[in-house]
Design a protein around this nucleic acid. Structure first.
Lengths: 353, 353
DNA sequence: CTGTTAGCGCCTTCAC
DNA sequence: GTGAAGGCGCTAACAG
């Protein structure tokens, strides 16, 4: 990453509408194309002198290797696919940034696939990886794709290095980067219990989701440790979205004997729920305490500010990208990484009076 | 070469360890490779019979064209670069989704570049496009990269089709997809004025930003139409972030003669500002009305819910992608598209009592 | 309508 | 340390 300077005009003399090729550089440096190639890939195997001439010629021509040709030859794309269920979900953006940063530093580009719950898209991206457009993939959607029912004719190229991020894929033997959802949920539940809350509602994630399963386990763990009974009637279904929070709030306010605290398994739901609770004339935290999960940017500025579990989103992205790069470069990669979460205490949860 | 080497694996028998090539399909279908290629690209120029045989052979082999080879030959990548200033900003996610959808339908992939204010990255992506890794680009960052200032003969080199989205680039002769920021800001200002507010503060975007320039003009337009004087003391600097809103709030509450309404030029700032205002013991909207801009998801569930300008983010993304695809496929493309905004009236703004 | 031929630009043995 | 040459897989050009 050296040249930034000469974007100027090598075109005063000629109509250089065409990009320089390795041949042009070779001719100008008076070496063979092989030497140019080596000067770029393995400079130590080229004499200092030749290297200098090549450098100069590259600078003069503004040569940039053609990636398609390079890929065709070397079977490497220096591209990584990031698969996520919903690009518009604010939870992912900081993770993406962490991924992008780390990939960028290692010279990889990032292609994003927003699955959007569409099997068609999933098939498309499966074909995409099969076609060798990417060297590896980071999966945020909790499952592998391209599992054809009978495997007939499915090419073996599908097996590129993969990393699971956030939503673990236990069945797959790939690096798993995540937080300890169960422990975090347990911790929050105990926090609420320690403040005197005995009737604690739980707003869930989507049924079957692995995060949901773990957080739900954690919720029950927390109750148990606090010697509180688990009451299924206090579980309200959700799916991590703002809208689910709004709906959960409606269910909540309609209840005759309301819980004194609600543990929402995403901040988005917590914020949506508080909205409904306010509209119903109740107050948070005076009438009901509300806790979230994720610590998105808006958690700190919500009204009241949200007590929640902090997830190191950027670091999660970075860790996943690092693990994948290790894999891609043949280095041993961590099998499983669990990053630490924090309980962030703000104003939406208060002791039961 | 250090791969798992199966050099002489007979490639029959249903499952090949190696991806099928066009030759394999050709042989199986008993046609030439050219016919296979045509059957894929221009089926109408291939006899029904041959087409059927090719289809069958493709199915049997699981053939997927090698994109690198295709790109090398045809000089088309079917990839589009999306350049944006900050991936972690929630404002962009829905726009990205709109872009992705439309690109996907047209068979294009999306590569995202998060500039993150880094000139180094910008140089990198300039080289990226120069290297021909993408067919076109959508720019959300308000300026071209890798281009010299003179509008004369320079752009011959890395000129791929471009589209400017949201932040217009007036100097560039490319399709511009945007909203009428000036009109929208004027409308909001007049709305506040119509409710009796006479001292209206304005929390700005980053200095020099084109959105900021237009919205600021709109703010002044609105004051003028409402016969209100423009008072520079009521302008608070910001940069569209939550944090800027928090800081603006601090400035606001410290003022001796406070305005009765604040127009924040992003929802994120409005939400951050309300946070500070609450912490200072004031009430929104009773003590001060607050308006936003963008209508992000959290605007509707903020407390109080936010009166703001709705931007059709998804449609903006779709329109930009469509315009770019037109360009890429040699069709005439719209020069400038301005999508409609809406004034969304919620609870954060009330008439002056 | 179909086949043959010739590269796209690069990397990488294989010789020297 | 360097050069010559073949070919990665595909499609465009040109015949037939």
């Amino acid at each position: 990453m050296d040249d930034i300077g000469q974007k100027d005009e090598p075109e005063q003399s000629g109509f250089s509408a065409r990009a320089a090729r390795i041949q042009d550089v070779a001719k100008l440096a008076d070496v063979s194309t092989a030497t140019v190639s080596r000067a770029l890939a393995t400079p130590e195997r080229v004499s200092l002198e030749a290297r200098a001439r090549v450098q100069e010629a590259i600078a003069k021509t503004g040569y940039v290797p053609n990636p398609a040709a390079r890929t065709l030859r070397s079977q490497k794309t220096y591209m990584v696919l990031v698969v996520l269920p919903d690009l518009a979900n604010t939870f992912f953006s900081k993770i993406l940034r962490g991924i992008e940063e780390t990939l960028f530093e290692a010279g990889y580009g990032m292609i994003i696939s927003d699955l959007d719950g569409s099997p068609e898209k999933e098939a498309h991206f499966a074909a995409f990886t099969a076609a060798g457009r990417v060297d590896g993939a980071i999966l945020l959607n909790g499952h592998l794709f391209g599992q054809s029912r009978d495997g007939e004719g499915s090419p073996a190229r599908l097996s590129i290095p993969l990393v699971a991020l956030c939503e673990a894929i236990p069945s797959a033997d790939i690096p798993q980067i995540e937080i300890d959802n169960r422990a975090a949920a347990s911790r929050m539940t105990q926090h609420l219990a320690a403040l005197g809350h005995k009737r604690i509602a739980y707003v869930s994630g989507p049924a079957g989701n692995i995060l949901e399963r773990e957080r739900f386990q954690g919720f029950k763990d927390g109750l148990e440790r606090a010697d509180l009974p688990y009451d299924p009637a206090l579980v309200i279904p959700g799916d991590y979205t703002i809208e689910a929070g709004v709906r959960a709030g409606q269910i909540l306010v309609a209840q005759t004997t309301r819980p004194t605290a609600v543990f929402c398994t995403s901040d988005q739901m917590a914020i949506g729920l508080m909205r409904t609770v306010f509209s119903a004339g109740l107050k948070v935290p005076d009438d009901i305490s509300v806790a979230g999960f994720d610590d998105i940017e808006f958690a700190a500025v919500a009204e009241p500010s949200l007590t929640t579990i902090h997830q190191p989103r950027r670091e999660l992205g970075q860790a996943a990208a690092s693990a994948l790069i290790d894999l891609l470069q043949g280095r041993p990669s961590p099998k499983r990484i669990r990053l630490e979460t924090d309980l962030v205490i703000r104003d939406s949860v208060v002791p039961l009076r």
